[in-house]
Simulated scan of single mutants.
Amino acid sequence: MRRRYAALLRRAASLPSFPLVSSLHAASLRRGALLVPSLIHAYSACGDLASARNLFDELPPEGRTLSARTALASAFSAHGRSREALNLFSGQEEAEMDGQAVTVLLAACARAGMVGEGRRVFARVRRPALQHYTCMVEMLGRAGEVEEAERLVAGMEARPDRVICAALLAACRVHGRVDVAERVARFMHRYGIA
Rank of each mutant, 00 (worst) to 15 (best):
M1E: 15
A6F: 11
R11W: 12
S14G: 04
S14N: 01
L15S: 03
L15H: 01
P16L: 06
L24Y: 10
L24A: 03
H25W: 04
A33C: 15
L34F: 15
L35T: 10
V36H: 07
S38N: 14
A52V: 06
F56Y: 15
F56K: 03
E58G: 12
P61W: 05
T65Q: 08
A68F: 07
A68Y: 10
A73T: 07
F76R: 00
S77W: 08
A78Y: 06
S82H: 05
A85P: 14
S90F: 01
G91R: 01
E96W: 00
E96P: 01
M97L: 15
D98E: 03
G99Q: 10
Q100L: 13
T103P: 04
V104W: 10
L106F: 13
A107Y: 09
C109V: 09
C109P: 06
G113K: 03
M114E: 06
F122E: 05
A123V: 05
L130T: 10
T134L: 07
T134M: 08
C135S: 15
E138G: 08
E147N: 00
E148M: 03
E148W: 07
A149D: 00
E150A: 09
R151E: 14
L152K: 04
I164H: 14
L168I: 12
L169R: 09
A170G: 09
C172M: 02
V178W: 05
V178R: 05
R183Y: 10
R186P: 02
R186E: 08
F187I: 00
G192T: 06
A194N: 07
A194M: 02
